[in-house]
Amino acid sequence: MALSRRAVGILLLMTFASAGPGVTTSAGVSTTNPVTGTTSASSHASPAPPNHPTQPTAAVRPAALRPAALRPAALRPAAGPTATVRPAGVEPVDRDIAAGKGFIYWGFYKWDDETASWAFSLVGANHPKKLPKDGDVYGFRFALIVGSDERLPRADGDFDAICGSEEAGEGEKRIAFVLDYGTQADAPDGETPPDPRGVCATAEEDFTVQQALQTVATVRTDESGLICGIDDYPAQGCGEPVTGVSAPPADQQVALDLPGDDSSEEGGSASDEDAASSPDDSSSDGISTGTVLTLVLAGLVILTLAVGGFVLSRRRR
């Protein structure tokens, strides 16, 4: 009896132990491949960049991993809404360059008016405490980063040029964005970057940078809140490690597409309601009859199965 009692104890332990990890494992499965469907599993396991966005260690002690020579990597706030974290290499940098390893991701920068230069943002774009102020300029640059080179937005953050014609209403603020989709050298296979554009967001006072950006562009994030795509560019993938690349050529300054330049662009002031769907995306507007048909069909199937199951369970009582 003593033996069987011990056995039962073990069994009980197993019940709870198996319930716990079982749940997390399934959740883990779901998070592993949010959008990429390809290499995010390997990016989790890849030991090369200590501050890779998906790597949890970045949240724990980024300072310890950071060599003094490099610019501070963006820290991920605890439980962090992070826009982009710069995967600053430590000693593997040289090795990475030699091995042709790099990352493509959206970098998040803030325009510093005093020095008239871009500075890599130390906080995520969705940080709830670091709200942007009226008159701020933020830059997003999609770039291939090999080693520790610097890929800033290729145009200056000129608030007056971007937001000069805008008026902020009561309880609103104006934030200028420089969206630089990068060069062809930065682009993932089969994609062509749009021209860099400057856009002015008139957002509610409480909005974060990311929310303000969402009023003028679609923003695709992964489950951890990392910005993966802006304006559906790139269409897939998120902070992917790439191999077999060399450092791209130095950037040339470019002129931004501004809303005022182009009469075909919508009038500029983006209202909260329709803004998310208005900038050239096909995902929310392009609802074809086929989509609706399959959706209705799916609804019917769900309803039939549910009602059928209910009837069956009633009949058997």
Partner: peptide, 25 residues
Amino acid sequence: SSQSQGIHVIVDLPEIPLPAWAAGL
């Protein structure tokens, strides 16, 4: 969490200030 917040506001609750160590919350 503020992580997946968008721009279509349902309700604006009064925000309770949290200490500095809960920076992301």
